[in-house]
Computed example of a mutant assay.
Amino acid sequence: MLPDVVVVGAGIAGAACAEALSAAGVRVTVLDRGAPASGTTAAGEGNVLISDKAPGPELALAQASLARWPVLLESLEADVEWQAKGGLVVALSSLDALTDFASGQRAAGVRAEVVSASDALALEPGLTPSVVGGVYYPEDAQLQPVLAATALLGAVRRRGGSVLAGVTALGMRPGGVMTSVGFLPCGAVVNACGPWAGEFGAAAGAPLAVMPRRGMILVLACPLYTRVIHKVYDADYVGAVESSDADLQTSTVVESTMAGSVLVGSSRERVGFDSSLRVDVLRVLARKAVRLFPPLAEVPVIRAYGGFRPYVADHLPVIGADPRVPGLWHVTGHEGAGIGLAAGTGQLFADLFLGREPVVDPAPFRVDRDGVMV
């Protein structure tokens, strides 16, 4: 059976769109030039965050996604190391900026609880005594991104769809998509190529201003004398996420995994597709993590990894049909929030594709907004 839709990109965004379409009875084929979930998805931390998003369209999509993830995972009977652990944002100087940010979020329906220094230390005993307080976000969660993408793609296969690894999409022509193994007829093509979405968009006749933004993560051994219970980050993180600066941005993010390791981030810089790991950046991440959690100074580093996130200048995902090429849709631009936003993104995309009432207002994510189409 020929597919109704070909999804180009087997990362978390493409997998979520394919799953949502297949659940509605659409025949789907997913292509990836590499192994499924081996690109940006494999380089993520698995964050499902509300805490770092200001009121607006991205927060609305994050809230829809947060509500959908547990229901979706239950329906798939998938173990993806889901942890509804909550997040703690801490300040080492003034709390004013954090409390103002949290106040705006609460008005948008986010649970954000201002905590004192003693409360923060009670939540995370390994924190430095220098914290002056923070904001606790009980809704923040975490999952293992490769397991999640694999579970979504598994559902596509069970419903009769296909997942083709090692197949490169080369462009479009009427009635289908050109690939490295020949022409594949289909009714529509979804560009879910993440940081490479601009590249495939250009090949399909619809270039996008999507750029790679590189990030690096340290993985530490399991600390025996302290635990990191929540996702913990400092007040600089939100500013780094929202920054459009191409230069290096770093902030402290520390969290544990169900495997027992500790992940330390985060960094952001626009350096093209330069995949080299920079030791100087890793040193900055390590120093900042120890400043926040002094006991981590004695914990050995297991490894470091990095990857590219799909950056758009206005920091909003691109979700919708391309007005320039009939049958071409785009789902990209989530930058470092793609794991958390994936469930809601898949639902929104399927709503638009099938003509259903959209789960959130799709207008802010449209392809033809300022600064997206080249």
Rank of each mutant, 00 (worst) to 15 (best):
S243Y: 06
T168V: 04
L248T: 05
L263F: 10
T99E: 14
G44Y: 00
Y305D: 04
L66E: 04
V90P: 02
G56A: 11
E77A: 15
A203R: 15
D4K: 12
L285C: 12
G355D: 09
S103I: 04
V163H: 02
A246T: 13
R68S: 12
R111H: 14
E113Q: 14
F353E: 01
V89F: 04
V26P: 01
V190C: 08
G333S: 08
D119P: 03
A24M: 00
F101A: 10
P295Y: 11
D96W: 13
P36Y: 01
Q144V: 00
G34L: 07
R33D: 05
A240E: 10
M172R: 13
T252H: 03
D52L: 13
G187T: 07
A18V: 03
G56F: 13
A67C: 05
E242I: 11
G260V: 03
L121M: 13
A155L: 01
V284I: 15
L49R: 10
G11V: 04
V146N: 03
G161R: 02
L61M: 10
G134E: 02
M172K: 03
L121F: 06
L316T: 02
N191Q: 05
L263S: 00
T41G: 01
D280I: 06
A343C: 15
L92V: 12
A321K: 13
A259C: 10
S22G: 09
Y305S: 03
V254S: 07
A343I: 04
D140V: 02
M373C: 00
E199L: 14
L248E: 11
R227H: 10
R291L: 11
Q144T: 06
P185Y: 11
Q347I: 10
F349G: 01
P364V: 01
D361L: 07
G25Q: 13
D234R: 01
D96V: 14
T99K: 13
K53F: 05
A363M: 04
A350N: 02
G109H: 05
L328S: 09
D32T: 10
L277S: 09
G154V: 11
H330R: 07
G11L: 09
R291H: 13
A209H: 14
P323E: 07
E199H: 15
V228H: 02
A203L: 15
L328I: 00
P138G: 06
L76E: 07
A18Q: 03
P174C: 11
T128R: 06
G307C: 09
V254P: 03
Q83I: 09
I12P: 00
Y311A: 12
